[in-house]
Nucleic acid binder design. Structure first.
Length: 694
DNA sequence: CGTTACTCT
DNA sequence: TTAAAGAGTAACG
């Protein structure tokens, strides 16, 4: 499966460029992986995207180095302690094992491509991809033979397969067929969990019992019924939990199935040799880290390294890893889930023309607002997402006191956020609204569906169990299609609701852990808790006043009217004596900051502890103290300001240098590099939080 | 609360 | 020429 590097002395630069496409998937059997790698590398080399990938990879390498160092520093006593912690957790997790349910994961085969072929049979047998020259959503099996894969840009795919046919995406079509499949699913489990347009989880325990037939038989029947109804093939996995079922559905894809019996030995055998990369929730980065730090790659090895995992990772991450090692995950009954955010983003050719950027922003605001209206949503938190010309991603958010949904409101606040970033060269702008009004959150639009919808959703008693994780991505956004759909048959109403259920496995928290277990284990971890500030504080945020004056006034004044006046507001004074805040609470010769006067005194008790929150930060940590003060400051401002509606001050407080277009190196990434360079005596012993997942 | 990173389709 | 869009969670400041 894995690309095996044959030892040789010839330089092979392409082998070091690891893309996601190296992840061996179904239909990639006869592919010359090295050839594909080489082409991808050649096409990528030198691009902005590529450079960004390299930066990210370098960053991960550092993270790995850091963790290895910490692992090496663990004393024998530490290890024996963490071994106990791990053993205990393993026992606790094991006690939650539930083999009483039978879960089925259905996964449509090359869904988008298959649908497109249905509507245009002339595509049959030819290599085809759904997507564009920029990005491919999915490819049919003919195309996969050439190494063409989902998430691969089209121009690279065309290089791999010159005859590749491109078909644009058409979500309405996919939603229609998705609905057909879901009708079938409904017959087997009216509470099925849709994970996306083309995937779902069904608890078939009941059907199996009622009809006294096996999971395998149900799977066969369901698959053949799906085929009858849609003309599409799918694959299925049957297992005692969702995590395993998902893995199983991939085994005999396409048009196949795999059953893992509800037997502990069977599960352990299955899991033991399984590469953990196959597990949902473990992606490229986690794989690299676990491989790089511990040299492991199978689920079984996770258990063997239990002590290290507990020592180096957060409680919830360690728990997840251990449960993967045990083959646990996702046996609970689905609950109603609500959408938590809604967003819209667009990529365009990079520009630094502020007027153009504001125009794009207005377009996005418009689209987002429209989507929100369709679902009757309104929210209090607005997040602006930016991708610079060099592919660096940033987000900027405000939380307001009012719920907003109109494009005017969205645009007004979004403009303020954007303004603070100018000048900047961008290739993507996105907006997201979250923090919904509880009353009208989530329930999909159509009032005629309301009775059924509310009925089903109200079955959301057990809100506990933070058992989720998996995104379900694309399909929620398509809910409105369903309700709008002319054809919408009555049954669909039910299904519409189910689309709200989600989330395949429980990753970070095992929902079925009972409280006692949780508590005891938490205690085990809590003991190690130490001052995280000192271990995690990052160094050196340059306090350069970003001098980029907005010489570039937006022509679209009206968009930014609210903050118009604050062009007079000064930013952090250039001098910025780092200790300024330590001496006295921000006097600032700046009236605009009047609110700061209301901030309680921040000083360092015994020159060590923060008077506001008790964080311990030795006086030598100058930069960290500055940052810490700014943290309280921002917190303060934010509180006072979220009421006024004008939030333009906050972004202005950032001390980090912004970067623009090309030079995005500095900040973020360096944060951690710096951190790793820092001398942190205690943390190597006690830290439970690692630099992991920075 | 705000920001970033990771993951999935 | 050309590397998406939408969503969720964890972790940290």
């Amino acid at each position: 499966m894995e690309e095996s590097e044959s030892a040789s002395d010839k330089p092979r630069p392409w082998q070091s460029y690891h893309t996601v496409y190296t992840n061996a998937k179904a239909g990639m059997d006869g592919v010359d992986k090295e050839q594909v790698q080489r082409v991808v590398y050649e096409m990528s080399k030198g691009s902005k995207y590529f450079e960004n990938e390299e930066r990210k990879e370098a960053f991960i390498r550092q993270k790995i180095e850091h963790m290895r160092a910490r692992a090496a520093k663990l004393s024998a006593a530490d290890l024996s302690h963490y071994q106990k912690v791990a053993d205990k957790r393993i026992l606790e997790l094991e006690s939650t094992r539930d083999l009483s349910r039978i879960w089925l994961h259905v996964d449509m085969d090359a869904f988008y491509a298959a649908v497109e072929t249905l509507s245009n049979p002339s595509l049959k047998g030819k290599p085809m991809a759904v997507g564009s020259m920029s990005m491919i959503s999915t490819a049919n099996y003919e195309a996969r033979k050439f190494g063409v894969r989902a998430a691969m840009p089209g121009f690279i795919a065309r290089k791999l397969c010159p005859d590749l046919i491109f078909v644009p995406t058409d979500f309405k079509k996919y939603t229609y067929y998705s609905d057909l499949t879901r009708k079938v699913f409904w017959d087997y489990d009216p509470n099925f969990m849709a994970a996306s347009l083309d995937e779902a989880y069904l608890d078939i325990s009941k059907v199996c019992e009622e009809r006294s037939i096996t999971g395998a038989e149900i799977a066969e029947e369901l698959r053949s019924r799906v085929h009858e109804e849609t003309g599409l093939t799918c694959s299925a996995g049957v297992a005692p939990n969702r995590l395993l079922a998902k893995v199983c559905s991939d085994i005999n894809k396409p048009n196949g199935q795999f059953v893992l019996p509800n037997d502990r030995m069977a599960v352990m055998t299955f899991i033991s040799s399984l590469p953990f990369r196959k597990i949902g929730g473990i992606g490229k980065v986690t794989e690299n880290i676990l491989k790089g730090v511990f040299g492991i790659s199978t689920c079984e090895e996770m258990l063997q390294k239990g002590s290290f995992l507990c020592a180096l990772f957060s409680h919830s991450s360690a728990d997840f890893f251990l449960s993967v090692g045990l083959g646990l995950g996702g046996t609970d009954t689905p609950e109603a889930r609500f959408r938590k955010s809604i967003s819209s983003e667009r990529t365009f050719s990079a520009t630094e023309d502020a007027a153009l950027l504001y125009q794009k922003l207005a377009d996005i605001a418009e689209m987002l607002s429209a989507d929100m209206q369709k679902e009757g949503l309104s929210g209090r938190t607005l997040t602006l997402k930016l991708k610079t010309a060099s592919f660096e991603v940033r987000t900027r958010a405000v939380t307001l006191q009012k719920y907003i949904s109109s494009s005017d409101d969205i645009l007004k606040h979004a403009s303020n956020l954007l303004k603070a970033e100018l000048p900047i060269s961008l290739r993507l702008i996105g907006l997201r609204v979250s923090h919904f009004n509880e009353d009208k959150r989530g329930v999909p639009g159509d009032p005629t569906q309301k009775t059924l919808t509310t009925f089903l959703i109200s079955g959301d008693p057990s809100r506990r169990t933070g058992d989720d994780q998996r995104s379900l991505g694309s399909d929620l956004s398509d809910l409105h299609f369903i309700s709008e759909k002319e054809t919408a048959m009555s049954l669909d109403n039910n299904e519409t609701c189910h689309h709200e259920f989600r989330d395949p496995f429980e990753r970070k928290h095992l929902s079925d852990i009972d409280d006692k277990n949780c508590i005891s284990s938490i205690n085990a971890f809590e003991m190690e808790k130490i001052d995280e500030l000192s271990s995690n504080k990052t160094a050196a945020m340059v306090n350069t006043a970003d001098v980029k004056e907005r010489t570039t006034r937006s022509p679209k004044r009206d968009l930014s009217r609210v903050s118009e006046d604050d062009s007079s507001i000064q930013r952090e004074p250039e001098d910025s004596n780092p200790d300024r805040l330590n001496k006295e609470p921000i006097t600032s010769g700046n009236e605009e900051f009047f609110s700061l006067n209301q901030m309680e005194m921040l000083f360092w008790v015994d020159d060590y502890k923060c008077s506001l929150c008790g964080a311990e930060l030795p006086s030598s940590f100058v930069e960290e103290r500055q940052e810490h003060s700014d943290f309280h400051l921002a917190e303060r401002l934010q509180k006072e300001e979220s009421g006024t509606g004008s939030s333009s001050l906050i972004p202005r407080l950032r001390i980090v240098p912004k970067d623009y277009s090309g030079s995005q190196n500095r900040r973020k990434k360096h944060k951690s590099s710096l951190k790793q360079g820092m001398h942190l005596p205690i943390d190597s012993f006690f830290t439970k939080k690692s630099s992991w997942q920075l």
